[in-house]
Design a protein around this nucleic acid. Structure first.
Lengths: 198, 198, 198, 198
DNA sequence: TATGAATGAGAATTCATTCAT
DNA sequence: AATGAATGAATTCTCATTCAT
């Protein structure tokens, strides 16, 4: 007898485990057996729920992005003014907590996968687009309310988003020149540079 | 009799082939046999020059960075004023030519490797540090000459560099929202925003 | 569901095959694929049960010694008087049957392995110690009962045991000067030389 | 221009190196490159003097036996009485010096090789036969002179020789139960047991 | 003579995937 | 539904041997 909820729960557990293993060992060294161990199941079970390793990874990336979206929505509370929202978004995405470090690692793996696999590119497009949109919304709203002064909100939203990605990479790669504090300071300085000071 | 130059040349050929394969297939799917085929040698020969796959890849990353450094030095001609230099650097790093696309793909793979392998992180530190320094030099010189107005050159140099990385990733991942032209426009807009307009 | 007995049985089959291959081709030329073929499994299965070739061989040596111990215990029946027991032991260890030839070949390979690998030395210590003890017991009991006359049972037990080893080597190496019959005659002559003639 | 003596000297150096490597790493793990390094030549040179690895090893075994024969002849001085000679032989073959340990290790490897390779068996036959003959000569002479009392000199010579082999194996394998001193004591006890005490 | 670069035929090992239970 | 034993294709790495110099 099919119990859809039980199936969904099992899938969720396995995807959670997959993201954990992707973060720990990387896409390249991920083995089904590690995912199974992490999830507390057997390799047979992983294959029972996911046809192939590729499908498992694609779903895992989607899963991680969904979680990230939920975290973002919690941050972007309607009451916050646009400038504060831009700052809050950067803070939320700072790779400071284990959860956000994990997310970043998974995204980095996704980008690499997207270089050669269009289906991974689509996953990135959907979720990354939403993320850029959230920043763009704040930038536009700020401009409309006279709190932000930029020649082109779209361009400055892209600056901010890509800057965060680039900084996060160096933080995660353990670069000597870019610490977590540097990342935060850099993001703040950018917002300061566009915010209208009364 | 040993002919050092022949040995060095063979190493160079194999590293060149390795970078090509890393770019084409990625770090994850790189096989020694592909490198050998690309270089026109046997797998045994690849192993004759490099003890292990890991060493081969580490050397290949270094090799690609060296090539990139040479390209950068050609761009940063002493005659150029700082603002023009910031623009020239972005143009030179735009993933528009096959060679620069290849470089970006290799760097992205390096970043991923650095997440778990400190020796890869060191390679990144050395060469990436030089790259950030080149941007910082231009930013500082611009500030001193009154051509650029930024509260903190270091922060704005980091913004610019990380922005380029983040934009390039999305371009290379084939993101719908960020085209090559968008990347270029975004970089130019950033320079415009810090350049002093007379 | 795990069926421990089936797992143990598979391990036994593979160890049995390994000893057979060690005897046929020697430690040096043993290939996992030969063991797999001999056991009727794939190489993957051999590795499923044994992590590495080294572990497989270590376990195989242990396995062969266990079998030899069982054969020895069958020989040393409690009813036999000590002198007869010394003779029975030599007879039992004579490399005359395929099974005992195989055992000797495996032991010889073990000794060679023990030269450089202490873990193999330990295997030898445990089982070889038991074998020397069995001979010593007979020697001592014979002395106590006045059936054997030796100045030092320990020394004479060591003589007997090492003599058998040295003789067996030459028999197995196909030496012209030492036939199976010579080995038997030599062992008997040694027992005769220490046995008290009434 | 062929200079036979130079050729012979080069061969000798390589064989010396081969025995050293056989003793250190064993027959199984011997690599031509190690032999070359030990001898101070290149692998190409090793192959220039010896057609194949197999031939190299066969010659190396012969070479080691020749050296052992020379050592033995130095020990068996004509002046020594037979009983003293038997003792001197055992002392000379005790694996106490690096040189004699090396010899034993090489012989053990030879025996293993002889199990499957008749040409190795022949090498063993020739040289081992001489060694048994030397012991037999002492045993016979002792009997004739009334210094040794054994029912059959041939049998007792075989006992002595094989006993030494078996003891040496355990000493070299690092057996807990058989030390170098035990080996010596056991050999002495055997000679004592056959020597006529006046 | 001597070299050592280059080869290529293996061999151990890994691991996604299958499938009988 | 879930398992985990079994597989075998794939891949790295080794090393004796060859051969141009």
């Amino acid at each position: 007898m099919a119990r859809p909820s039980a199936v969904a729960e099992r899938r969720r557990e396995i995807l959670e485990a997959t993201c954990e293993v992707v973060s720990e060992r990387g896409f390249r060294d991920l083995r089904i057996v590690d995912v199974a161990k992490e999830a507390g199941y057997s390799t047979g079970t992983v294959h029972y729920y996911f046809d192939s390793k590729e499908e498992l990874l694609r779903e895992a990336f989607r899963f991680e992005y969904e979680k990230s979206r939920i975290r973002r929505e919690a941050v972007v509370s309607p009451g916050l003014d646009p400038v504060a929202r831009l700052r809050a978004l950067a803070d939320a995405y700072l790779p400071s907590s284990p959860a956000s470090v994990r997310s970043w690692r998974v995204w980095m793996e996704l980008w690499i996968s997207a270089l050669r696999d269009p289906s991974m590119g689509q996953v990135n497009d959907v979720y990354y687009g939403e993320w850029r949109q959230a920043v763009l919304d704040a930038m536009r709203e700020g401009q409309e309310k006279g709190l932000i002064e930029v020649p082109d909100p779209q361009l400055f939203a892209n600056m901010y988003v890509s800057m965060m990605d680039g900084l996060a990479i160096q933080v995660l790669a353990g670069a000597e020149g870019i610490s977590l504090a540097d990342m935060q300071a850099t993001c703040r300085a950018f917002v300061d540079s566009v915010a209208v000071t009364s």
